[in-house]
């Protein structure tokens, strides 16, 4: 049995009130579906005494609109997106990613904004206070040592959100609101390589919307997730690809991989593959390139060597599925 620390829950009725509450209570955490925040609070991962609950905003921020591209409210639930016909038709990679998150109950509770802002995960942090104290804690909370990378100075807890690689591959952006105004940040600039806080989100800023550009609609895309069980588990690897083809030739490539370190990565240095025939050899080559740029760590309790060996295989299958 794990109890929550004493909490005062603030319940704003609008986005403006919500960001004002965040500003007025430094350190306050945002509560949407609670599927990530509540267990983490039970683990004693945050010192906050204030939550800003967004339940009152769910009418305002729970929409899927086609406006140029797609606009998705941050409080869309994961199962709502997994079942959404517009998403299935326009951005199947995102619909697939949503359909593979956790289990049915968690998908019903969890939100898109919450998944994008999911705290990083590591076998040394997602544990009870007692467990962590026995090990002298770690970099991410209460300690100074990293147990994953010897001598590591930067937290490498893994970005474990499934929507992030899918939306990265689709070149999506997020709209952030703070008391000072709002800004739209491309997702590829949203994540930071530091597991302590892996986004550019300011403490009083709220992610309110995801924007997918219309260019994503015509791309051949797919999402794939490696995990031990076919449900509930966080990813041991997750990948998404979006390809543009002209005839039988590759015109553009976007491949994102998650569950490695603090941020999901877009595979770079693959522009020379543009112009190649979109076939199995191309898929193999993309897999080899991706493997060179991805280093699975022991931050996830699935053998990193196996995950590394499997990566090119998964990329090949993913690309062939997208092209099929």
């Amino acid at each position: 049995m794990m109890t929550l620390p004493p909490l005062e829950v603030l319940r704003p009725g609008s986005v403006a009130e919500a960001v004002e509450a965040l500003r007025a209570h430094p350190g306050a955490r945002v509560l949407a579906g609670g599927t990530d925040l509540v267990p983490n609070l039970k683990y004693g991962m945050y010192d906050t005494r204030h939550l800003v609950a967004l339940r009152g905003l769910s009418k305002e921020l729970r929409y899927v609109r086609e406006e140029g591209g797609l606009r998705l409210g941050a409080l869309c639930t994961i199962d709502q997106l997994a079942e959404n016909d517009l998403l299935k038709a326009r951005t199947p990679a995102l619909a697939e990613a949503c359909g593979q998150i956790a289990g049915p109950q968690l998908r019903r509770m969890g939100t898109l904004g919450g998944n994008l802002c999911l705290d990083t995960r590591c076998v040394y942090i997602n544990q009870s206070y007692f467990w962590r104290s026995a090990l002298g804690f770690c970099l991410k909370k209460d300690g100074t040592l990293c147990h994953v990378v010897a001598g590591g100075k930067r937290c490498v807890a893994a970005a474990s959100n499934d929507t992030a690689p899918a939306l990265l591959a689709l070149d999506a952006g997020v709209r952030l609101v703070s008391p000072r105004g709002e800004r739209v940040v491309p997702l590829r600039e949203f994540y930071l390589p530091d597991g302590l806080h892996n986004t550019v989100l300011q403490p009083d800023e709220l992610l309110v919307e995801v924007r997918i550009p219309p260019a994503a609609f015509g791309k051949k895309q797919a999402f794939m997730k490696l995990r031990t069980r076919a449900a509930i588990d966080f990813p041991a690897l997750n990948l998404a690809v979006a390809l543009e083809t002209e005839g039988a030739v590759v015109k553009s490539i976007s491949l994102a991989v998650g569950a490695l370190a603090a941020r999901p990565v877009l595979i770079k240095g693959i522009d020379d593959l543009v112009g190649r025939p979109a076939d199995a050899r191309f898929a193999e080559e993309l897999g080899r390139r991706a493997q060179k740029q991805c280093r699975p760590l022991t931050n996830i309790s699935v053998d990193p060597d196996w995950r590394r060996d499997l990566l090119p295989v998964l990329v090949r299958r993913l690309v062939l599925r997208a092209l099929a």
Binding site: M1, M2, Y43
Partner: peptide, 28 residues
């Protein structure tokens, strides 16, 4: 109940409806 009371705790310990089980207690 205090603000941090979970629904499960309210069901089990306030309403004595102990049929809903407290397993992992973290959503798994």
């Amino acid at each position: 109940a205090p603000g941090q009371r979970t629904l499960l705790e309210a069901l089990r310990y306030d309403l004595m409806l102990t049929g809903s089980k407290q397993g992992c207690d973290k959503g798994d």
